[in-house]
């Protein structure tokens, strides 16, 4: 195997980690609340701006990141209360479109505030050399934190009372009322966690990419695709799909170009939707 290909594979793996984290957040929301937040990637973008501006204002990176995660988590709750809750009983497609309106809003509002410039946080992290392979430390860091985030979510869902309730509600929504559960509260908690994961994603991405208001348009569709491929609401499926898609993009990018790799990934997605409509890991 040649060394550049190996590098591409490793980079794909590292990218997959961050995508997996975001797919987990989106899937959690879908599984529990049964709505698709089409503006999820735009929440990530907000998180990136938050880190960027706080860091520029002199905050240390860790503090800026924590603040961004908290901020986007609150934003997630607001999204639920202001936009999702009123359309909870509307047809699913209206729910999707309501968050589509949010997409417009967030993109234009950030344009209004920050302009359309591409902004780089300017934190220079070292490049790690392993033999002949070069790996950016920022990516490694992002991958590490993404895994930490994913594991933390797993432990929360598996081990805590609230986590178990969240898994239960995604298996049978209606009956939860009979358990004495006020679904609205669970929805709020879920939106909070989904927002926090988007915020974390933002912190990790801002180290690698420039931020601009329309960033969500580039990788937003990618995240939905991953979620659908894994089976909407199926977290493990989404996790696996993240790494498949990121490898396609990374290896495809190595052989042809990233854009063609995207074409390939989306085409594959369409085909798989017809072959395995409930996701690659569907039972």
């Amino acid at each position: 195997m040649d060394i550049y290909l190996l590098e591409a594979v490793i980079n794909g793996l590292l990218l997959g980690g961050v995508l997996a984290l975001l797919a987990l957040g989106l899937n959690l929301i879908f599984g529990v609340i049964d709505v698709v937040w089409i503006a999820y990637a735009d929440l990530v973008m907000c998180g990136m701006y938050a880190v960027y501006w706080l860091h520029v204002a002199g905050w240390p990176l860790w503090a800026a990141s924590l603040a961004a995660i908290a901020g986007v988590a609150v934003l997630g709750v607001l999204v639920h209360v202001l936009i999702i809750a009123p359309v909870l009983r509307a047809p699913p497609i209206n729910q999707l479109l309501a968050t589509g309106g949010l997409l417009f809003f967030l993109q234009s509002f950030t344009t209004l505030l920050f302009g359309t410039d591409f902004r780089n946080i300017g934190v220079r992290l070292p490049i790690i050399e392993m033999g002949d392979i070069f790996i950016s430390f920022a990516r490694l860091l992002a991958f590490g934190f993404a895994l930490v985030g994913a594991v933390a979510l797993y432990v929360f869902l598996k081990r805590t009372y609230l986590g178990v309730a969240i898994r239960a509600i995604s298996q049978d929504r209606e009956i939860m009322g009979l358990m004495g559960v006020d679904q609205r509260r669970i929805y709020l908690v879920t939106s909070l966690i989904g927002g926090a994961l988007a915020g974390l994603g933002g912190c990790l991405l801002v180290l690698q990419y420039d931020v601009h208001p329309f960033l969500g348009n580039t990788f937003g569709p990618l995240i939905f695709m991953i979620c659908v491929l894994g089976g909407l609401g199926n977290m493990i499926g989404g996790f696996v799909a993240s790494f498949i898609i990121s490898q396609i993009i990374s290896i495809g990018g190595y052989y042809y170009s990233t854009e063609w790799a995207y074409v390939l990934a989306f085409t594959l997605f369409i085909v798989l939707m017809f072959i395995r409509p409930r996701g690659i890991l569907a039972r």
Partner: peptide, 9 residues
């Protein structure tokens, strides 16, 4: 720029 689309959203 963006104000219009913000209101639109």
């Amino acid at each position: 720029i963006g104000a219009a689309n913000t209101i639109y959203g």
